[in-house]
């Protein structure tokens, strides 16, 4: 049984460590520091933590100003507010000037749970991916989050990192390599490839086990970075397995599935199926219930895998 860590907890811990190592790091939050876990940094470095109140537009603009004066600001709130409320500030004040601002949004996707559709961001990956100069990262687990946060701090430019609320199974070893723009093949296979991001990677790993018992060999490729896309690993998967199932805790419009479909349809067309939220808003419920409701469980992925293999074989 793998350990369970919430990516937001890994973020809070890593940010506090980075604060010790790099005095240029400053952190801004909009009254959600207890939830986003920036409170760990705030407690350790109160002079470098700025609570901006419930005013996300000003928070993002302030971060851009801090970056213009040489700081490395990490900005946190829920994904729905970071990307939704402050979208134009992210575009104009951060991405357009290529400001060195890290937007680390927690509570992405439907596993926000009981708070319901108003608080469940299912379109943030698509929105951030459409913005020029933006790098988009969705880590799979705690250890990968720690590495992604460190990589974001070391990278000079705007980065969007999407994290989750709940504890998720650990997929990667602490010493697994991580680089922005590089995908990871975590299970080898020949009949199809699951291309996944965030918590759906652990679900795909379980789906691959289900299919294996039926004699279907599924590869699992995890893309922590959705932009820039790891084209090489996708081409290899499409050529070698000839069938693709994408999976994300996000709308099937414009996110990981959209990115993979755009790239492969132009460069190596293969039967492809997108698993995700089908162009609709979320709703209240327990996280696990919602994953079932939206068809994001290993059994759903296994069924998508069977379907795509049938399609490939004609």
């Amino acid at each position: 049984m793998s350990t369970m860590i919430a990516t937001r907890d890994a973020y809070g811990q890593t940010l506090a460590e980075l604060g010790e190592e790099n005095k240029s790091i400053v952190v801004l939050d909009a009254d959600l520091s207890g939830s986003t876990k920036t409170s760990v940094f705030a407690k350790k470095f109160p002079e470098r933590f700025f609570n901006m109140g419930i005013a996300e537009a000003n928070m993002v603009g302030t971060a851009a100003g801090l970056a213009a004066a040489g700081k490395i600001p990490f900005v946190s709130t829920f994904a729905i507010f970071a990307v939704g409320r402050a979208w134009e500030q992210v575009r104009q004040s951060v991405a357009y000037p290529k400001a060195n601002v890290k937007i680390v949004a927690t509570h992405g996707g439907v596993t926000v749970g009981e708070d319901g559709g108003s608080h469940q961001s299912v379109e943030d990956i698509a929105i951030m991916r459409a913005v020029p100069n933006m790098t988009v990262i969705v880590p799979a687990d705690g250890p990968e989050t720690a590495k992604a946060i460190r990589a974001a701090a070391a990278y000079n430019g705007p980065v969007y990192v999407r994290l989750g609320r709940n504890k998720v199974p650990t997929v990667f070893a602490d010493d697994a390599p991580f680089a922005i723009g590089k995908g990871s093949q975590i299970v080898d296979g020949t009949d199809l490839t699951f291309v996944t991001t965030g918590l759906m990677t652990a679900q795909a790993k379980a789906a691959a086990d289900i299919l294996k018992a039926e004699g279907i060999s599924a590869r699992v490729v995890h893309l922590a970075t959705i932009k820039p896309l790891d084209c090489e690993i996708l081409l290899k998967a499409a050529r070698e397995t000839g069938a693709i199932v994408t999976a994300e805790e996000h709308s099937i419009v414009g996110g990981l599935g959209g990115a993979v479909a755009e790239f492969l349809s132009e460069n190596c067309p293969a039967p492809l199926k997108r698993v995700g939220v089908h162009d609709r808003f979320g709703l209240s419920g327990k996280a696990e219930e919602l994953l079932k409701y939206f068809g994001l469980m290993p059994a759903d992925l296994a069924e998508a895998g069977r379907e795509i293999v049938r399609k490939k074989r004609g």
Binding site: V26, E47, R48, F50, A57, N58, M59, V60, G61, T62, A63, A64, G65, L66, A67, A68, A69, G70, K71, P73, E88, Q89, Q92, S93, Y96, P97, A99
Partner: peptide, 25 residues
């Protein structure tokens, strides 16, 4: 030119950020 402006309403926030950074330093 220090920052990108033009979309009205965003500049003062950026000025605040610069002022905070300068004070920290």
């Amino acid at each position: 030119v220090e920052v990108c402006t033009g979309s009205l309403g965003q500049g003062l926030s950026m000025a605040n950020g610069m002022a905070l950074a300068l004070r920290l330093d």
